[in-house]
Write a protein that binds this DNA or RNA. Structure first.
Lengths: 202, 202
DNA sequence: CGTTTGATGATACGGTCGTATCACAAAAAT
DNA sequence: ATTTTTGTGATACGACCGTATCATCAAACG
């Protein structure tokens, strides 16, 4: 056999080529041939590493999830170690707001997948629906911790507040991608609500 | 010539057939042939009333906007006449939350168009970006009125609060469509935030 | 009454899609 | 050294896409 190549690496290269196309021209433009060209390989290779298109879409979605998680972690760390309940909430939400080129790419790609899954629910066996849910529980947990530490009004319902914050952030992200306002304006609105929750700026 | 048919009516029939497809199978499934079948006409007729596919997409988008506006108006009226600042804000936001079959259809279709416009900005010459903006200004105006009437904390920044409420509602809608929670749960979260803003339930 | 014109059907064209097939080279296994 | 096995290229197939063309039929108009 020829040079025994690293399959995982190749799959990642091809999958990320799809993500790049999805973020700029949309998922409907991500044909197998287009992905092959973007990845710099032949159509046959795309078929070889992903037997079918659905496999490719699901594989790339997994890579997108990894990239998203990595960004959230990095954003939390950037707010200082060890993380406080406040920095965990701030870091998580500001990470998924499209304020720079990378986060715009991630959120645009995520939006493309979201719409695809809406039309084809079979695609998201379970992975699609659970990720936002995990995020929400993550936020709710740290909000509760913040309440116990006296940093947040204890009369607040933590799960409801967490759901509201995440929905607010997603909605703001949509408005940024739609060109209604820029990332800084959205960040300011998010900060306004967060500071109100945590009782004033840090 | 044959029976001299009503063009506007036919266009609406065909356009709404596309919206129906978009809401169930997504816009990528809305081919000219599929739309023709759904509308019960021949492919040629779709071409006759909409010379090109882009014309069809834009025409149907206009119908979607009409349906959305009509629903918002109806929801506001359902809260009693004459409308108060509070009922205007409540009615607007609850109208665009996917809580029943019709609103689910509308928001799903809107989401499909949103993603399409993200990938093909040329489609939304101006109509796409201005509609949420109008909604936001509408909300901000009535929030300010409510402040002057003493129903809302005057220290609040009305435009920021309006943007937050609309983003929250959109984000909640996304989570409902994504199957993360049902419409009633989303409505409860929205009501919680609205009541908090307006100082307790009505 | 004939002719023009608005509305509709049937069908075709070139392109792209996802997928499949066949061939073949090169490293590994025997 | 020969026989597997793994990776890769070239190409083909049937389906569907948006769009265009040609023919036709019936109402309106002179």
């Amino acid at each position: 056999m020829p040079k025994r190549v690293d399959h995982d690496l190749r799959r990642r290269q091809i999958g990320e080529a799809l993500l790049r196309i999805a973020s700029t021209k949309g998922l409907q433009a991500a044909s197998m041939r287009e992905v092959a060209t973007e990845a710099g390989v032949s159509l046959r290779l795309v078929q070889y590493y992903f037997h079918t298109k659905q496999e490719l879409l699901l594989g790339a979605l997994a890579y997108l999830g990894e990239q998203l998680s990595a960004r959230v972690e990095a954003h939390i760390r950037a707010l200082g170690l060890p993380p406080t309940p406040r920095s965990l909430v701030y870091g998580t939400l500001t990470a998924i707001l499209p304020t720079d080129a990378e986060s715009r790419r991630l959120t645009r790609t995520y939006a493309a997948y979201y719409t695809l899954v809406l039309a084809e629910p079979a695609l998201a066996a379970d992975h699609g629906a659970t990720y936002p849910d995990l995020l929400e529980r993550f936020l709710a947990g740290h909000l509760r911790t913040a309440q116990q530490a006296g940093q947040v009004d204890p009369g607040l319902d933590a799960p409801t507040a967490a759901a509201g914050l995440l929905a607010l952030t997603n909605g703001l992200g949509s408005s940024v991608l739609g060109g209604q306002r820029d990332g800084d304006a959205a960040l300011a609105i998010l900060m306004y609500h967060l500071d109100r929750l945590f009782g004033g700026p840090a």
